[in-house]
């Protein structure tokens, strides 16, 4: 027993040290090259293009009313979508991980649907569902409710595209934590809300935060689904990604990249927060 263990360890360290240093260097270099080519270079390009015609023009481009409206709409959308999806995600994850019921497997599979279908199709579904030419859409129109080509449509499309993030993050976490703590709390006389607030929520808070960050990043950057339902009305239904696209197709490259840099900035912020949260989660475990 003793000898076989020693031998095993020996082979493992042996094989590791036998890995030629050249292979290691090559792999590391390839990774760096890939990052440089596909991430650093484009990022640098965005900023260099944006600043190509001077800082003044850059500032003008992002301070222009349509750009500001686009930023506002994007942030409003995220501010509505993220809390709603957080609530939905916690509910779905709770139901899936803590109860057993019929149709659970189906629900878990459906949860991935927004990731699986193209966002453009997601947008089209809503146009077909509540567009002004459909019975439901025209009924809504008669009552003065406009969904397609207005903010509610953008919010709904973004909701759909981003709803799996929180639930996906929480289901494995809650499954691994099991039901025992909640059961213990119940036998001690706690009510449902107390159990959730004192026991469940603190146990999942970092996972929830992580899911919400991913959800925020995606809802800010979503293009396809929003593009279909938005109608691209400048100053009204344009989010940042749509505004970038419009400027670009008008050959207004500098302004386009300037606005894109806002998007990049928001993305970098989210990545930084995500990194911090990940580190915290790691330390907590």
């Amino acid at each position: 027993m003793q000898t076989s263990t020693t031998r095993q360890t020996a082979t493992i360290t042996g094989s590791r040290s036998k890995d030629p240093i050249a292979v290691q260097l090559l792999l590391i270099a390839l990774t760096f090259l890939f990052f440089a080519g596909f991430i650093f270079m484009p990022l640098a390009l965005v900023f260099s293009q944006a600043l190509q015609k001077g800082v003044q023009l850059y500032l003008d481009s992002i301070r222009e009313p349509y750009a500001l409206e686009a930023v506002k709409l994007t942030l409003i959308t995220a501010a509505i979508v993220v809390p709603l999806n957080a609530v939905f995600g916690v509910t779905a994850a709770w139901a899936i991980s803590k109860f057993s019921f019929k149709g659970k497997t189906l629900l878990v599979s459906l949860l991935d649907l927004p990731f699986a279908v193209s966002p453009v199709i997601a947008g089209l579904i809503f146009v077909l569902l509540v567009g002004s030419r459909t019975p439901f859409g025209s009924w809504l129109g008669e009552h003065g409710i406009k969904i397609i080509f207005s903010t509610p449509g953008i919010v709904i499309a973004t909701l759909f595209v981003t709803f799996p993030f929180v639930a996906r993050e929480l289901i494995p976490l809650m499954e691994s934590q099991g039901r025992e703590e909640e059961e213990a709390a119940i036998t001690l006389g706690a009510r449902g809300w107390q159990v959730f607030r004192i026991i469940t929520l603190p146990n999942i808070r970092w996972g929830l935060m992580y899911g919400m960050i991913l959800c925020t990043a995606r809802s800010i950057g979503e293009f396809g689904a929003v593009s279909v339902v938005s109608g691209h009305i400048r100053g009204m239904t344009n989010t940042i990604p749509l505004h970038v696209e419009i400027l670009y197709s008008e050959y207004n490259y500098t302004a386009s990249f300037a606005v894109a840099s806002i998007l990049v900035f928001l993305a970098l912020t989210t990545v930084a927060i995500k990194g911090a949260v990940e580190k915290h989660v790691h330390n907590n475990q």
């Binding site: 213990a184 709390a185 119940i186 036998t187 006389g189 706690a190 004192i198 026991i199």
Partner: peptide, 27 residues
């Protein structure tokens, strides 16, 4: 279950991991 007033001890303890010993017992 919460109205039965029954004490339950679990195989894997099921202590509240985010609460300290005092708050666990006082829960």
């Amino acid at each position: 279950a919460r109205e039965k007033n029954v004490g339950f001890v679990f195989q894997h303890y099921a202590l509240f991991r985010r609460l300290n010993v005092f708050d666990n017992v006082a829960f």
